[in-house]
Amino acid sequence: MSDTTAPPPAGTGTVRTPAAKQRVPFWDNARLACIVLVVLGHSIQRLTYDSDIALGLYLLVYAFHMPAFALISGYFSKSDPPGRGQMVRVITDIVLPYLVFEGLWTVTKLLVEGRADPNITKPSWTLWFLLALAIFRLVLPYLALLRWPLLWTLLISIGAGYLPNIDSTFSLSRTLGLLPFFTLGWWVHEHRLVERFALLRTRWWLTAASAVTFVVAGWSAWYFLDIWQAMELRQWLFYDDDYASIGQTGWWAGGVRLLLMLVALLLSIAFFSLVPREGHRWTHFGQYTMYVYLLHSFVLYPFRESGVLRGLDPTWLWLPIVVVASVLISLALATSPVRRVFRPLVEPRPAWLFADPSLATVGRRDDPTGSRRTPGD
Results as ranks from 00 to 15, higher is better:
Arg277Asp: 08
Gly279Phe: 00
Val322Asp: 11
Trp236Met: 04
Leu99Ile: 15
Trp125Arg: 06
Leu138Asn: 04
Val215Cys: 08
Thr126Lys: 04
Asp367Trp: 00
Gln287Arg: 15
Phe182Tyr: 15
Arg349Met: 03
Thr289Pro: 07
Pro18Leu: 08
Arg203Leu: 11
Val90Trp: 13
Trp148Val: 07
Arg277Gly: 13
Pro141Asn: 12
Leu104His: 02
Pro25Asn: 03
Ala70Gly: 04
Pro141Ala: 10
Ser330Met: 10
Ile44Val: 15
Tyr98Cys: 02
Ala33Gln: 06
Ser51Asn: 11
Ser173Leu: 00
Pro8Ser: 01
Arg89Lys: 14
Ala54Met: 09
Asp167Val: 02
Tyr293Val: 06
Leu37Thr: 03
Thr92Leu: 15
Arg343Leu: 07
His296Ile: 06
Arg373Glu: 08
Tyr293Trp: 11
Trp352Met: 02
Gly41Ala: 05
Ser168Gln: 13
Leu267His: 05
Glu278Val: 13
Arg281Leu: 14
Ile44Ser: 10
Ser124Glu: 11
Leu40Asp: 08
Met87Val: 09
Pro123Leu: 01
Ser73Thr: 15
Asp367Gln: 04
Tyr62Ala: 06
Leu60Pro: 00
Met87Ser: 12
Phe170Ala: 02
Val38Lys: 08
Lys78Ile: 07
Ala54Arg: 09
Pro357Asn: 07
Met66Gln: 10
Lys109Ile: 01
Trp187Arg: 10
Leu178Gly: 03
Ile227Val: 13
Tyr62Trp: 14
Arg373Trp: 05
Arg203Asp: 13
Trp27Lys: 05
Ser371Met: 14
Glu195Tyr: 05
Glu102Met: 14
Ser268His: 04
Phe285Tyr: 15
Met66Lys: 08
Gly254Val: 02
Gly255Ile: 05
His296Leu: 06
Thr126Trp: 02
Arg257Met: 10
Val39Asp: 06
Trp228Gly: 02
Pro141Trp: 10
Gly370Leu: 00
Glu195Arg: 05
Arg201Trp: 04
Pro348Lys: 07
Ser79Phe: 00
Gly161Trp: 01
Leu104Ile: 06
Glu102Lys: 00
Leu184Gln: 01
Leu131Cys: 11
Val212Ser: 08
Arg373Lys: 11
Leu104Arg: 03
Arg23Ser: 07
Trp252Ile: 01
Val212Phe: 10
Gly307Ala: 11
Arg234Thr: 12
Leu146Tyr: 03
Ala30Thr: 07
Pro9Glu: 10
Phe214Met: 08
His280Ala: 15
Ala10Arg: 06
Leu130Ser: 05
Thr175Phe: 12
Leu99Ala: 14
Ile44Met: 11
Val215Glu: 00
Tyr49Asn: 10
Leu265Asp: 02
Ala54Ser: 12
Lys21Ser: 15
Gly85Phe: 03
Leu57Pro: 06
Ala253Glu: 13
Thr17Ala: 15
Tyr142Ala: 15
Arg234Pro: 03
Thr315Met: 05
Ala230Glu: 13
